[in-house]
Design a binder for these strands. Structure first.
Lengths: 335, 335
DNA sequence: TGACTCTATGTAAACGTTTACATGAAATGT
DNA sequence: ACATTTCATGTAAACGTTTACATAGAGTCA
């Protein structure tokens, strides 16, 4: 790989002149500029980002730390973020922690060594790794989707409580009264907020005796939906509507229903949460409380870039609204 | 951020000694080692990967260049690759070209400037960018999923021809004779190979007059499935089975069928290709020709690492087998 | 004309590591 | 007792950029 020095020699100018041409800064006569550009072409020279980063003390890279790349929700977030970063000439180091705190810690350390200019993180578990490693450093950090207490960082969250309320309200307004919620509240604070919102809606309709169905939080979402739904279907009468706290869980519910010959939405209404692409693909297509995934990613990227550009930018908390997307998996209660 | 020099001063040793304990190389007495480690803790020092990479002339980063992060198939590939890279202490620079050749070119240039040690690429379009930029450099390169002629690189492909044959054979053996194929052969060589395989199966059953239904290749996969299926359903009699060349296309077909009140698989058998997670989630679950996504990613990662470690490693071509996954969307022809 | 300001280029010192080489002290072999 | 080898540490030169500073010719202004 050719270097700036070789380009300089080839063009018979100094190192500084080559640098000026590359960065388009300072004065350089048309004559020399042309010679330098010719030399770069001749040697198919590409400057080393490593050397530049070292000297400039900025890497133009940001770390994206997510729990699971293979979950469509996080993949969609990553996608939105990548777009903004590319536009702003930043690279993205993608780190998938596999919902494993040790791995998250390992990645956090890597990002620091890599001297990324900022980090966007969807923390895994208690996020101790982030606390420890980012704690005292003044590295721009944005927490996305999952909150973490006691961390000096911007946050991009979603109004989960309102979403839970809206989802439940939708079912209640359709006339359903025997409604159950499926989801693991231990999974993250977000789930607890969704449950709280759903409860609030139930209370408004004078329904008090409903607890969410909690199936061991260690089950993956799809399996949890299957198991919990099967459990509910054994009750008699079984619920006429189910609010699953994630779309993937809702799909598990729909499969369980199909196995029992329960037709959705004729015999059972199902509503999910997230609005991943899968939701629109299901048959019947899934009614869901949509998270503004694209906006979340973009906002997070915007915030991290802002913090990089203005070092004394005060961390910002943004809470984005969810919105109900009514599709074909919910229907007015026929009873 | 503290530097090695500060650690050295704090521990009252030379730079070289600090470097030796960090890299665990050469001789260093227990006494000094302890002092250095204490100093590193005290300053919460993390070595700069930038400086190290510059000096060592290796970045321990590899670039992953894919057409679209938001397509589950590519997300799954990225996921598999990330796993292997992490295990081997390599970082991953994720580049999503959005199926846009200009953007692919921009990213290829970035990767070179970033001095990645290797590249895994699922080329977009004609892949001219890869030709131009990687062409003469001796940068380890692995082509994944989509082939590209005239490039000195390893390849990880899938036996698309055999997959097309197997998928079609499955339908034929179920007794279907009026079968149509949906997919855009212009999309990539892979599609043409799948079509060729399917034709081969048809010929073995003495069926010659079937051409694949080609709907404008610029339509996204889902929309293409919908449009093509609707077109087919207007024929009478309409086909009793449809082979969609990707899973997402198959889902479009299933939606079109649902809208017409055609029940799958009772009135129409549908088979897809890829076996993305969505396939198992559909109701009915989708029979499909599975690509070994995980194995493809792992193999690609393995190859690129091998080429990095052994610079005169000869590029390898590996062709992985597809296999038929029979689920609920296909059924024996009732006629 | 002398004092400035532009314009244009070059020199050399960083940035934070790794590592070849140098230097000694201690252990080992004869 | 002396020549080797092994152990332990340090010095300084890279790696490929950017950039502060120096230099100097050419305009501009009084």
């Amino acid at each position: 790989m050719s270097t700036m020095r070789e380009v300089a020699e080839h063009a018979e100018v100094s190192l500084a002149t080559v640098s000026r041409v590359i960065n388009n800064v300072g004065y350089v006569s048309p004559d020399l500029r042309e010679r330098v550009e010719a030399a770069m072409r001749a040697l198919s020279y590409q400057p080393s980002a490593l050397a530049r980063s070292l000297r400039r003390q900025e890497s133009r890279a940001i770390g994206l730390l997510i729990p699971q790349l293979d979950q469509p929700f996080f993949a969609a977030l990553a996608f939105a973020i990548e777009g903004i970063l590319f536009e702003n000439d930043y690279r993205m180091l993608l780190c998938s922690a596999q919902e494993d705190e040790a791995r998250e810690r390992a990645y956090a350390e890597i990002l620091i060594r890599q001297r990324v200019d900022g980090v966007i993180a969807v923390p895994t578990g208690q996020g101790r790794a982030l606390q420890d490693l980012m704690g005292n450093r003044k590295l721009p950090l944005v927490l996305l989707d999952r909150d973490l207490p006691d961390l000096y960082a911007s946050r991009v969250l979603v109004n989960n409580d309102q979403g839970g309320y809206d989802g439940m309200m939708h079912l209640l307004k359709l006339g359903h009264r025997h409604v159950r919620v499926i989801g693991a509240p231990t999974y993250s604070i977000a789930m607890q907020q969704r449950i709280a919102g759903a409860r609030r809606a139930l209370r408004e309709f004078g329904i008090h005796d409903h607890d969410p169905i909690i199936v061991s939080g260690t089950l993956p979402q799809y399996e949890m939906g299957m198991a919990a739904a099967n459990h509910l279907f054994d009750e008699s009468p079984h619920p006429t509507a189910i609010f699953a706290l994630t779309d993937v869980t809702a799909v598990g519910v729909m499969h369980a229903a199909a196995q029992r010959g329960l037709s959705v939405p004729a015999a059972l209404s199902v509503i999910g949460f997230d609005d991943i692409p899968l939701a629109g693909f299901m048959i019947p297509s899934l009614t869901t409380v949509a998270q503004p995934i694209r906006a979340m990613g973009q906002e997070a990227a915007r915030l991290v870039l802002e913090q990089i550009e203005y070092p004394d930018f005060e961390p910002e908390h943004v809470v984005l609204p969810t919105h109900l997307v009514v599709r074909d998996s919910t229907r007015v209660y026929p009873g």
